[in-house]
Design a protein around this nucleic acid. Structure first.
Lengths: 147, 147
DNA sequence: GTACTTGCAAAGATTTTGCTTCCAA
DNA sequence: TTGGAAGCAAAATCTTTGCAAGTAC
């Protein structure tokens, strides 16, 4: 039993349906891949995985679907300290907010939850009167294994 | 007297000289603009400002200089929640680390220093055994004025 | 003088747009 | 049936690379 280890939110697909978004089979496929992904996918990687199930799916559809998910706040867009170029990485907002640590030596991405991070968000909302939609904390450096 | 409000570090140019970097007049110009900039500049904006002083300076030189500064850890690279496309914004690392709040309505960028942020960095270094080179905290949402 | 830097042109990488056809509701 | 979505091709953005000529030290 992990009481608060993982906040299970509604699957992306159900979330979209409830917002009246038309569910095409392309969107269903993409959303399932994003949701089931272990790591962080950029648009091209997502497209490649999708094509293995539906070889006709177009790259543009991937970009448009990601934009749509971002618009509804259902995915986070990350840069992971631009470890390999300027692409963007996406992850479903189905877990608690977490910090991304990008190792500049081995390229490993660690995730890290922190109550201090939660407090910091509270401080931003209170002291700056800023309503947060999305927050991103990314650190670049050297991980424990590489030190 | 503002005891710790602003940590004045060495000017970028002196920093570069001390590291044996050859100071061309292009680099001197770019580095002065970055250092004196009020806001956050992307590569093209920096190029445009530079051209008003030296119309022959090339865009490529701007990219190369930014890459060099980043390599030496003298600038931070930001995305500001991709408010307007995927470009990167740069600021000299001459002040204390701070959080960037990007208003999705008016586009305003607020900066915000926080001791909680400092504590969070400490936690990352201690608990994750991660040596931080650069950290970035960016929030997207609605600022006080727009609420 | 020499190694490093610049400018130029061209290529590369990523993302967006216009338009026609197709399909989910 | 009908408005929104997908596919295709092309364009737009942003960034990097190869190489000859120039320059800081």
């Amino acid at each position: 039993m992990e009481p608060e280890e993982r906040v299970t939110r509604r699957p992306l697909e159900r979330e979209l349906v409830s917002r009246g978004v038309r569910m095409t089979h392309q969107r269903r496929l993409l959303v399932q891949i994003i949701q089931g992904a272990d790591g962080h996918l950029d648009a091209i990687a997502l497209w490649q995985r999708a094509r293995s199930q539906d070889p006709t799916i177009n790259k543009v559809t991937v970009y448009r679907t990601l934009a749509m998910l971002k618009k509804y706040g259902l995915v986070d867009e990350l840069d992971l300290m631009h470890l390999e170029g300027g692409r963007h990485y996406y992850e479903a907002k189905t877990t608690r907010d977490h910090i991304h640590l990008a190792c500049l030596k081995c390229g490993r991405i660690q995730e890290f939850e922190s109550s201090l991070f939660e407090k910091l968000k509270g401080q931003i909302e209170r002291e700056q009167q800023f309503r947060i939609n999305t927050v991103r904390v990314e650190a670049g450096g050297v991980c424990d294994r590489c030190k």
